[in-house]
C-alpha cells in the first residue's frame, strides 16, 4: 500500500486494523500495533515524502501475528542509535516516534543508509 499524502494515513490504519481483527488480536494489542504503525507512517511522510507499506499475517507455531514493513526512499538516518533515543528529533516533534513504536511492538528492525532510504519492519504477535 502506497503512502503519499497524509490523507492516506487513516485508510492505512484501518487496513492494519482489519488484519489485526481477522487474526483475533486483543483490543489493547491492536491499539498498540496501529499506534506504532501510525508513528512510522508519519515519519515516512514527514522525512521522505511517503513510501511503501506492506501488511502481512505471519505465524510461528500456534502464535500468529502481523508484520508491517515501511520502505521509503528518503534521506535515510545518519545515526540510528541516536534516532532510537527518547526525545531525539531532527524535526519539531516530541521524538517519541521511533523509540515509542519500538516499545509498542514485539519485534522491531530498522535499516537505513544515508541518501538511499529507510526500511522499518515491525512484528506484533497476537499474544504478547
Amino acid at each position: 500500500m502506497k503512502i503519499e499524502k497524509e490523507q492516506d494515513v487513516v485508510p492505512f490504519r484501518n487496513r492494519v486494523k482489519e488484519y489485526a481483527v481477522r487474526i483475533g488480536m486483543s483490543v489493547v494489542n491492536q491499539t498498540k500495533l496501529i499506534t506504532a504503525a501510525s508513528e512510522l507512517v508519519r515519519n515516512m511522510l514527514k522525512y521522505a515524502n511517503g513510501g511503501n507499506t506492506i501488511i502481512e499475517v505471519i505465524s510461528e507455531g500456534r502464535n500468529s501475528g502481523i508484520r508491517l514493513i515501511f520502505q521509503d526512499k528518503g534521506p535515510g538516518i545518519k545515526d540510528i542509535d541516536l534516532a532510537m533515543k527518547d526525545g531525539f528529533s531532527t524535526g519539531k516533534s516530541l521524538g517519541l516516534g521511533l523509540p515509542g513504536a519500538k516499545r509498542l511492538v514485539n519485534e522491531f528492525e530498522i535499516k537505513s543508509s544515508v541518501g538511499e532510504g529507510t526500511t522499518v519492519s515491525i512484528i506484533k504477535w497476537k499474544n504478547g
Binding site: 490504519r13 486494523k17 491499539t31 496501529i34 499506534t35 501510525s38 508513528e39 508519519r42 516533534s93 516530541l94 517519541l96 516516534g97 515509542g100
Partner: peptide
Amino acid sequence: SIVDSFMGR
C-alpha cells in the same frame, strides 16, 4: 481508537 504521539502533542 488511536492517539499517537502527534495527536498527543
